[in-house]
Simulated assay, not measured.
Amino acid sequence: MKKFLTAACALGLLLSAAGCGNDDSAASAKTEKTAEDESKNLDLLKKDFNSITKEDWKKIHISKKDLNGAFEKMTETNSNGEKVVKKVEIKNNTVVITFNNSDGKSMENGLLAILFDQFLRALYKHSSYYDGSEPTIRFVDLDNQLVQESNKPLDDDNETDGSSQNSGKKS
């Protein structure tokens, strides 16, 4: 199940991010600042997530627009007719993912948080949002109950890593 969820989420995000093209007519009207916010080498994201090398990651840059598009794609109904993520928001250096359930810190939500954290953190750190500091990734349910929060990468072998994590509390 873990590999299926990882593959499904990764494929949806990668294809969404890679499918967002740059409009040539809009590119001519961009200022110097917006020119810095162009995606580069998104075709490298079409690989299996775990096969993207450090050298590949050095070449990848995701614009805010393309990353927002990928996050929006996460909220769509999947091929099984399920909507796993209700919304994704970026506030300052924090990404908040709201699962489309009220299950709190269930085993399913906990596993999804671990899987999503690694992937979302990598995308964020290669985007125009990244300011050099580690982002905080928060997962909540529909009742705004905190599932997982971390300001450093989660270890998928050990769910609690001593970072700023709380469970079972209202956010």
Results as ranks from 00 to 15, higher is better:
residue 67 L to H: 05
residue 46 K to Q: 14
residue 164 S to D: 09
residue 101 N to D: 09
residue 44 L to G: 07
residue 46 K to T: 12
residue 91 K to T: 13
residue 106 S to H: 10
residue 83 K to L: 07
residue 37 D to L: 01
residue 152 K to F: 06
residue 116 F to R: 00
residue 85 V to Q: 08
residue 105 K to N: 14
residue 49 F to P: 04
residue 23 D to S: 12
residue 20 C to I: 15
residue 92 N to Q: 14
residue 81 G to C: 08
residue 79 S to E: 13
residue 52 I to K: 04
residue 39 S to P: 01
residue 165 Q to Y: 09
residue 124 Y to H: 01
residue 124 Y to C: 02
residue 74 M to A: 04
residue 55 E to V: 06
residue 87 K to F: 07
residue 160 T to K: 12
residue 69 G to A: 10
residue 30 K to T: 05
residue 45 L to Y: 02
residue 34 T to N: 04
residue 88 V to I: 15
residue 42 L to D: 00
residue 105 K to F: 10
residue 78 N to L: 07
residue 75 T to D: 10
residue 100 N to Y: 11
residue 90 I to W: 06
residue 138 R to L: 11
residue 131 D to F: 01
residue 126 H to Y: 01
residue 104 G to I: 07
residue 32 E to C: 04
residue 110 G to L: 12
residue 108 E to D: 12
residue 58 K to V: 01
residue 27 A to G: 02
residue 44 L to R: 03
residue 81 G to A: 13
residue 138 R to D: 11
residue 131 D to L: 05
residue 144 N to T: 06
residue 3 K to S: 13
residue 6 T to Q: 11
residue 40 K to D: 05
residue 8 A to W: 02
residue 17 A to G: 04
residue 21 G to L: 08
residue 126 H to D: 00
residue 162 G to I: 03
residue 126 H to I: 01
residue 65 K to G: 04
residue 84 V to H: 00
residue 120 L to V: 15
residue 29 A to G: 08
residue 33 K to G: 06
residue 18 A to F: 02
residue 70 A to C: 04
residue 17 A to N: 06
residue 6 T to H: 12
residue 72 E to H: 11
residue 5 L to H: 14
residue 65 K to S: 09
residue 168 G to P: 08
residue 99 F to S: 02
residue 161 D to T: 14
residue 158 N to I: 06
residue 167 S to M: 13
residue 45 L to R: 00
residue 98 T to A: 04
residue 73 K to L: 09
residue 98 T to Y: 09
residue 136 T to Q: 13
residue 109 N to C: 06
residue 151 N to Q: 02
residue 86 K to C: 03
residue 104 G to V: 04
residue 64 K to T: 09
residue 102 S to C: 08
residue 168 G to M: 05
residue 67 L to A: 06
residue 11 L to G: 06
residue 101 N to R: 00
residue 20 C to D: 15
residue 141 D to Q: 07
residue 136 T to P: 07
residue 135 P to E: 03
residue 135 P to F: 05
residue 14 L to H: 15
residue 135 P to W: 08
residue 104 G to Q: 09
residue 131 D to P: 01
residue 36 E to C: 03
residue 62 I to Q: 00
residue 78 N to E: 08
residue 140 V to M: 07
residue 166 N to A: 15
residue 123 L to D: 00
residue 63 S to P: 07
residue 49 F to A: 14
residue 23 D to T: 04
residue 59 K to M: 13
residue 130 Y to T: 00
residue 114 I to G: 12
residue 16 S to F: 02
residue 12 G to L: 10
residue 12 G to W: 03
residue 58 K to Y: 02
residue 161 D to F: 02
residue 54 K to T: 12
residue 152 K to P: 01
